[in-house]
Computed example of a mutant assay.
Amino acid sequence: MSPPRASKEERRDQIMKAATACFSRKGYHLTTMDDIVAESGLSKGSLYWHYKNKKDLFLSIVDWYLEQVKSGFEAAILAAPTAADRLRLFAELSAQMFSSPELEPLASVLIDFYAATRHDAEVNEAMRNVLNPFIELVTGLIEAGIAAGEFKAVNARQTAIALMAAYDGMYMYRMMLEDEFDWAETGRQFMETLLEGLSSE
């Protein structure tokens, strides 16, 4: 008896995992659709049945990445008792996320796409869709801290954007200085410096 045929969702998941592995090894620009075919073990026809080209596949992975990261992330942070504690937890969970075996390879590929946002409107929109939920989350945390009297009055959204930019920068430094870069400690020190500046006391 032949094994049951994989569902469309299972095939797409198989392709996305193969593509993520290829993108992580070679980078987005050097990876070819043939590489992904070989990694997935599927036929070229099957790959093109699901995705019209490499960019289409990558943008689908970005959507998947966002869902994976958001799952449980916000709920865990909002459970912390104070705004400062929530931002500390954001830093801790971000370090765990960037270091996780499942998400770290894709995070490294997202860096490849940053340069393309200036020249490709579709990529720009996809990257905004990744960043905006986190910017909005941090903005809300800072606004809550201001309302509670924990933080001084600042432009919450611009502060959130600065925080996200700092974490993206730390990730790039981690790729270059992997042997001496401690995510947990660097993120903790950065967050404590930020909280000291935000404190209303």
Rank of each mutant, 00 (worst) to 15 (best):
A184K: 15
A160E: 00
F23P: 07
A75S: 15
A84T: 07
E10M: 13
I135F: 00
K8M: 07
A156N: 04
A160H: 03
L59K: 11
V123F: 00
L110I: 15
A121G: 09
A6V: 04
M33R: 05
A107T: 09
N155L: 04
K26M: 02
E180M: 09
E9G: 01
T186Y: 06
L141D: 01
T159F: 06
K26A: 04
Y171A: 07
A148Q: 14
A6G: 08
A95R: 05
V138K: 09
Y51L: 10
G140S: 06
S100K: 07
E136Q: 13
V37P: 09
M164H: 13
A162E: 10
K8Q: 10
S200Y: 08
K44I: 08
P3A: 12
K70I: 09
L137A: 11
F134E: 08
A83C: 08
A184W: 00
E10D: 14
Y171M: 13
T20N: 13
D120E: 14
D13H: 15
G187F: 11
M127R: 03
W64K: 14
L141Q: 02
I161L: 07
M172L: 11
S60L: 04
R25P: 00
S40V: 05
A19Q: 05
A19R: 05
L89F: 05
T186W: 06
A160F: 00
F134D: 03
F58V: 13
D179R: 12
L59R: 13
R128W: 09
T186S: 11
T82R: 07
D63S: 12
A121F: 14
D34I: 13
H50R: 08
R188L: 07
A91K: 00
H29M: 13
A21H: 15
I15R: 00
M33Y: 03
L110A: 02
E104C: 08
A19G: 09
F73Q: 10
V130C: 07
Y51V: 03
I111L: 15
G140D: 06
N129E: 10
A91H: 01
E180N: 11
A83G: 15
L198I: 06
D120L: 03
D34Y: 05
M176K: 14
V69A: 03
A21M: 12
M170P: 00
F151L: 06
Y167V: 02
A156G: 09
M1D: 06
N155C: 08
K44Y: 00
I36K: 10
M176C: 07
A80L: 12
W183L: 09
I61W: 01
D112R: 01
N155F: 01
M1P: 01
A107F: 09
R88T: 05
M172P: 07
